[in-house]
Design a binder for these strands. Sequence first.
DNA 1: TTGTAGGCGTTATCAT
DNA 2: ATGATAACGCCTACAA
Lengths: 337, 337
Amino acid sequence: MQKPATIKDIALRLGLSISTVSRAMRNAPDISPETKQAVLLLSEELHYQPNRLALSLRQKQTHTIGVIAPNLDYVLSTMIRGIDEVALEAGYTVMVCQSNESFGREILNTGRLLDSLVDGFIVSVSSETKIFDHLKKIQARGLPMVVFDRVTPQLSAPSVRLDNEEGGYLATEHLLDQGYKRIAMLAGPANLGVSNTRVEGYLRSLKRRGVAIDKKLVIHCDFNQDYAYYATQELLAQRRRPDAIFTISDRMALGAMLAIKEKGLSMPQDIGLVGFNNEPVMRLLTPAISSVDMPSFELGKAAAKLFIEVMHNNEDMRMVEEVLKPRLIVRESSKRL
Amino acid sequence: MQKPATIKDIALRLGLSISTVSRAMRNAPDISPETKQAVLLLSEELHYQPNRLALSLRQKQTHTIGVIAPNLDYVLSTMIRGIDEVALEAGYTVMVCQSNESFGREILNTGRLLDSLVDGFIVSVSSETKIFDHLKKIQARGLPMVVFDRVTPQLSAPSVRLDNEEGGYLATEHLLDQGYKRIAMLAGPANLGVSNTRVEGYLRSLKRRGVAIDKKLVIHCDFNQDYAYYATQELLAQRRRPDAIFTISDRMALGAMLAIKEKGLSMPQDIGLVGFNNEPVMRLLTPAISSVDMPSFELGKAAAKLFIEVMHNNEDMRMVEEVLKPRLIVRESSKRL
DNA sequence: TTGTAGGCGTTATCAT
DNA sequence: ATGATAACGCCTACAA
């Protein structure tokens, strides 16, 4: 139950002044080897550890990065592992706050971290977020902020993201290549850039191939597996039902798969399915499900590296935009040639 | 780029003393309505937010809970969501550090958080951890610490965990009920209590049924899916191969499933399979895989509640041990009657 | 009702 | 080479 020792304690017991002890700790140049020895010895004995709060208060930096994440699912936690790895290396502690896709929680979390707890932010917004004032406040405070994965034009900040348009394009091209004619898309919430960009890729592919675009085939719903399930049921109930479905996440692909199986349709013959994220389980399902793979770990690392750079550079890096490329992993669910 | 306003700034601009402003903020009783109004107004205008560092330094508490987690997979992140929910409610911020199952990282993380950053810890140890000095240090400092999920007798701390023995028992009983005779078990690292306790449940069931115990059927390997895959290959290559496999995690069950399918064996006829954790995908696989379900979210909430209690109680709660019950979810992979 | 002064643990500046 | 002092932002006796 003993209180942690402070330099004051050490100074007292050694009959030295506080500043001398402080110097010894930070092995400053102007100090005699003997006193330094003595101080180090005693500090060892007392298990002295500098008080980070006091330090931070003085130097006005906490060496902590706040990470705002909408959830902790497979993709995000992989990205966070990447962030963590780089941050740790650079001497930063990472503080992860997950908003559970709730706008309110996101505001709360940023607010708390902003109360001088962190030196800056690495942010991915919740799917509910349509207003960005709480994040702009970060910038107004002059704190560095990097946006990752879920990027939005409404936020003028350096960012790292996937080429989502390309992802949507790749998936759609592949489905067309496999002879699918009527490709539906389960998109995410309509205000989420990530989702819309993937839709754009989908549209680009269709246009390029001269395939008529049917708006009834693009369904916006929650990322949730259940919503995808119901949405797919509705899709399959349409008079001219789609013969392929491209979902914006693997979770949604799972929901779609369930509905497809229940309906008694078979993949890839009756219907093709392509997901997004390439979660490890996708290859284990029957049929194994195709998916657009994104380099999540690398993306996290890139975000952290960018953050460190922004931190140490004083230049305006708001326009920096790093874009990683997706690649399509073709599996049984969409391979019928 | 403006520095955040301090009470000093406000005091200056209002011609008041710092303490008066401070009082106004915390709506202390002895203050005139007018000055209070004025202060609140200006503080609003300047976007004043109290500096948590200064506050913490003074009051010697940070209102932050450090969570040490071995990873951020499905189970852990669900638990953390539970922790988060309760902690937030109680006015705490949660700081999650994930050790990536590395002992070194775990030490590093606890060390950093211990530097006066958190008021206490909610801990689940890495699978590598065999020495617990870094965690005992937390207690030596008089900080509250609750252990969750991965509990160990080497740590005398209040804890919340699953009844793992029961989980192992349930799964094994079920397999025996289904007529499986030779049940193998893929256990986790040998030093991990969670793993060993599940093995104990497995053994209890076998003994009760009078089934001979074959040590070659209990394999300790990493949690990793790949290890499980190889381990299963070896199991299936044994002269008298097992006719059922019980794995300590769903990830391992996936690895086992791959090996089983590759070998051309069918579930549940040739071989039965039961996993642990009941991750959502298990029900989507073909065949759907049985699994021992654990109330992860509830467990996280319970851990946080216990923490708050320990925090506010001064009594010695080291002996408190909360145990949640698992339940078996039977699916195709093990249901052959 | 308001102000003064000291302290939380540390570092930086200026003396000595 | 060492010490005294002010400061970081806030709170809290105590004094006025």
